[in-house]
Design a protein around this nucleic acid. Structure first.
Length: 576
RNA sequence: GCGCUUGUAGCUCAGUUGGAUAGAGCAACGGCCUUCUAAGCCGUGGGUCGCAGGUUCGACUCCUGCCAAGCGCGCCA
């Protein structure tokens, strides 16, 4: 059940019956102030303009045609022609009872499920994951969970970078350490250091650089020994990723890995097919696609190079092969890319070429969900003190440590084991939520103090709200979920309405791939609960019916919080 | 030069197809723990929504121009 949709269909019908053209939107929104009721219809003014009539008069006409008495206790005309809708407490109770009985919280599955390919995380396996991979990984994962919850078929694709010139250097370095394999495996436990060593040798020693280039050629020509070393490196690197995903509570695993190298055999064919589609131009020895849609300096058309003059392929070629695979083999209706905003031009070029070459049909939705860079407190890209990239694993460890210090201070009575668990859950949640709760498109400032201050719109605040409810249940012993809901107090009714708005929230999240909308909802829900909690005694009331009703509201809040946080990939705790 | 993104309170950010008095949190100030977890609640102060025009009953939102910041623009990914 989706309140906004329900009211929308009723008001739209009334608009039609009042003589307004069919396609006029009713514009239903939650009211921005309590005096304006629970929902408001804003579409009448626009409709009045369209048919050149007085908006107040049209509002009266629409109100006459409007059938809403089953869900609303009062609908009134206000201001220049708003309809303010006050929902019936009995109807709210009835809907909440249905929520309680439903596995999906009274939220219907989508009528036409899509096959949605989601491309996210995509680390470069030559190095360890660093903070630059965080946003794609957690935003993508949250959206994946929401899409699945709504009933779509989601195919995760972790397009990891496992190919390219840098692997020649790494293999050469591995090979020179072969003599003592203990040393090799030890060194590979810190991939970042391993990469630096290899890079240093590549830059400093011409012999080594020569060998590295030979290895690239060998690797590409399928040399078995070289391939074995490469595979060994890739396995270790993927293991590092798996560890991070597990620690981050991200749903990616090996099954979702579809590396760049998987497309190697198709690259030649991609070029051939681009030629057949008459899109290919040779320029200075390189094979390019020139598209009118993309112009650069002096209005000159920008090329997308798909094959270098030395015959090598580029990431545009691989991305085209991947798009084709996602259409032909995975049968995607919609493909989402959670990729850094800086790749916007590249992806737009690839999308356009793929459609022109008929690698994917026109109807397939291709979306680049761009996000900004993670900045430090100073507004510059987030780095270590020494100016290096911050390893993701180090960041997560620090989050847990900082959270532990806080738990020790806030709740020293918990056992050590429990404090460690709380620190782990809260620390990770804080990092994830700080990112998820912000608008995707802008750069975002990473600040330990604000995310772990545990005040305001943060994960710990939401987890705390949940833990508080669990504490009530421990003291209550039994809850009667059959009890009638009584929504007399203002805070009770507001909480009830909020509880029922998860559905319309998820509708928006799915449409725009914006997890911050869900964060915002959960923050408001928790806020409404806190107000209710302060205003309405639950266990302290003598009135048995009221106690049961309030316990039930608390139960519904807990369930909704847990579900919502779960969709963000954030765990709840019974105690903190 | 061209393109993309961003510009809202001292700071970090919301603001959903144009709607009523632009909202939170932090920071500041003032209240609330013998009472269900004070990681909380209630309240006060704080705004030229980058600037200037335009569209209209109505603009933070749409259009145009300008200013500022970040990023991208041929053989890395």
């Amino acid at each position: 059940m989706n309140i906004r949709q329900l009211i929308d269909s009723r008001v739209s019908q009334a608009l039609t019956d009042a003589g307004v053209p069919n396609d006029t939107p009713a514009v239903i929104k939650p009211s921005n102030r309590p005096v304006f009721g629970d929902y408001q219809a804003n579409g009448i003014m626009g409709a009045a303009k369209k048919i050149k009539t007085n908006p107040r008069e049209l509002a009266a006409k629409v109100l006459d045609c409007l059938v809403l008495s089953d869900i609303a206790e009062k609908v009134e005309i206000a201001g220049p022609g708003f309809l303010n809708i006050h929902l019936k407490p009995e109807w709210l109770s009835q809907q909440l009872d249905q929520t309680l009985d439903s596995k999906t919280l009274n939220i219907e599955q989508v009528k036409t499920p899509q096959t949605i390919v989601v491309d996210y995380s995509g680390p470069n396996l030559a190095k360890e994951m660093h903070v630059g991979h965080l946003r794609s990984t957690i935003i993508g994962d949250a959206i994946v969970r929401v899409l699945e919850f709504r009933g779509h078929q989601v195919i995760r694709q972790n397009h990891v970078g496992d190919w390219g010139t840098q692997f020649g250097m790494l293999i050469a370095h591995m090979n020179s350490l072969q003599s003592s394999s203990d040393e090799l495996s030890m060194k590979l436990s810190d991939l970042e250091a391993f990469y630096r060593e290899a890079k240093k040798r590549f830059d400093d020693a011409p012999d080594f650089a020569e060998a590295a280039r030979d290895y690239v050629v060998k690797l590409q020509s399928g040399d078995p020994e070289c391939h074995r070393l490469w595979q060994q490196f890739i396995d270790i690197s993927l293991q590092h990723c798996d560890d991070i995903y597990a620690r981050l509570n991200v749903s990616l695993n090996r099954e979702h890995v579809m590396p760049e190298s998987a497309y190697n055999n198709d690259l030649k064919q991609v070029i051939t097919d681009l030629g057949t589609a008459d899109l290919l131009t040779e320029d200075q020895g390189a094979k390019c696609v020139f598209l009118e849609d993309f112009k650069g300096k002096d209005d000159k058309i920008l090329p997308t190079i798909v094959q270098k003059s030395d015959g090598g392929y580029l990431y545009a070629t691989t991305d085209l092969a991947a798009l084709r695979y996602r259409h032909q083999t995975l049968h995607a209706n919609r493909i989402l890319y959670f990729v850094d905003a800086r790749q916007s031009l590249h992806l737009n070029q690839v999308f356009t070429i793929a459609k022109k070459a008929h690698f994917v049909p026109e109807a397939t939705q291709l979306e680049h969900l761009a996000f900004g860079t993670m900045m430090g407190k100073d507004g510059k890209p987030f780095k270590t003190r020494a100016g290096g990239t911050v390893k993701l694993i180090e960041l997560l460890k620090e989050a847990e440590q900082r959270a532990l210090a806080l738990v020790n201070q806030k709740n020293p009575d918990l056992s050590e084991a429990e404090r460690l668990l709380v620190a782990q859950k809260v620390g990770i949640a804080a990092v994830k939520y700080a990112d998820l709760s912000k608008n995707r498109s802008s750069d975002y400032i990473f600040n330990w103090d604000s995310m772990l201050s545990f005040e305001g719109n943060t994960a710990p605040y939401l987890q705390y709200a949940y833990a508080r409810i669990q504490s009530i249940f421990r003291k209550a012993n039994t809850i009667d979920l059959q009890a009638a809901l009584i929504l007399d107090e203002k805070t009770e009714k507001q909480l009830a309405v909020k509880l029922l708005q998860l559905s319309e929230t998820l509708e928006t999240v799915v449409k725009d791939s914006t997890p911050n909308i869900l964060c915002n909802y959960l923050f408001e829900l928790a806020g409404h609960f806190m107000s209710f909690y302060e205003a309405c005694p639950i266990l302290k009331t003598d009135n048995e019916a009221m106690r049961n009703s309030r316990l039930k509201l608390a139960h519904l809040t807990a369930t909704t919080l847990k579900t919502g946080l779960g969709l963000l990939g954030i765990d709840t705790l019974d105690r903190m």
